Simulated scan of single mutants.
Amino acid sequence: MTRFDAADTAERRKLFAEAVLAHRNRGSQFCTIEVDPADAPGVNADDEEPAPVPWVQFAEKTFNLDCTDAELDRLKGLLDDFPECRIERIERPEEAEGANVRITARSDANRLGQFADRALQVTFGLDDDYRAWVTQV
């Protein structure tokens, strides 16, 4: 991979697909995609404890992300558009607000890139021009 961020739909999806391919080709543990803090709702660098930046990880055939109950409802609604993706497990640790969600996804890298983009945008209420970074491959 030669670039690590993108801010329009087509470029983000291409970037995410390339990250999935790089992850697979390298046999890495996982790849991580993070929303740019400047585009993340509720994230303010001046806050003592800013809201966490939305992220999604992909490993083998599984996406992983943390979300609130409202965000989880939006994510579940999105799955109707992606029949190759299904929620495998939802964990609700006592010490955390919200849930950790694992989604099994069996598809090609391009479709997985589309899902990652839509999951971030819909789940976390991001604008069409949000910037995302591949932070680990």
Rank of each mutant, 00 (worst) to 15 (best):
Q29L: 15
D73K: 14
T68G: 06
A70K: 10
D47H: 12
D39N: 06
G42S: 07
A22G: 07
D73E: 15
A45I: 11
F4A: 07
C31W: 10
D5G: 07
D73V: 13
L15K: 01
E94K: 10
D80T: 12
G98A: 00
Q121D: 03
A116L: 09
A22T: 11
H23Y: 00
N110M: 12
V35K: 01
A40S: 12
D128H: 08
D127E: 07
D8T: 15
F115Q: 04
D8F: 06
I87N: 09
G27F: 02
G113Q: 01
E97I: 08
R3W: 13
T62G: 04
M1N: 15
C31E: 05
T123H: 01
L75V: 04
V137E: 14
G125C: 04
L120T: 09
D66P: 09
L78S: 02
G77Y: 04
I90P: 00
I87H: 02
I87E: 05
I87G: 04
E34G: 11
P83K: 02
F30E: 05
R118V: 06
T62I: 11
A96I: 09
C85K: 00
E88F: 11
M1E: 15
I87A: 08
T9R: 15
K14P: 11
A99I: 06
Y130T: 03
G77R: 01
D69N: 10
P50E: 13
L72M: 06
C31S: 06
A116K: 03
F30S: 14
E91Q: 14
A70C: 04
V56D: 01
A105M: 07
D117R: 00
E84F: 14
V35A: 06
R13Y: 02
V56I: 15
D8C: 11
N25K: 14
A119V: 10
V101S: 03
R13S: 01
E18W: 00
T2R: 14
D47M: 04
A109L: 04
D80R: 08
S107M: 02
Q136S: 15
E71M: 08
T104F: 12
L65H: 01
D81Q: 05
E91S: 15
D127S: 11
R118E: 10
L21N: 13
P54I: 00
D108T: 13
P52R: 08
H23G: 07
R86C: 06
A119Y: 01
R118G: 02
Q121Y: 01
S107K: 01
S107Y: 03
E11G: 09
Q29K: 15
Y130L: 08
D5N: 11
F124L: 02
V53M: 11
T68C: 05
L15Y: 02
D47Q: 09
N64A: 15
F63G: 07
R102F: 15
A45H: 05
N25M: 10
L112E: 04
P50R: 14
L112G: 03
G113R: 00
C85D: 07
I87D: 07
D47P: 01
P52E: 09
F124G: 05
V20I: 14
D127A: 15
Q29D: 13
E88Y: 14
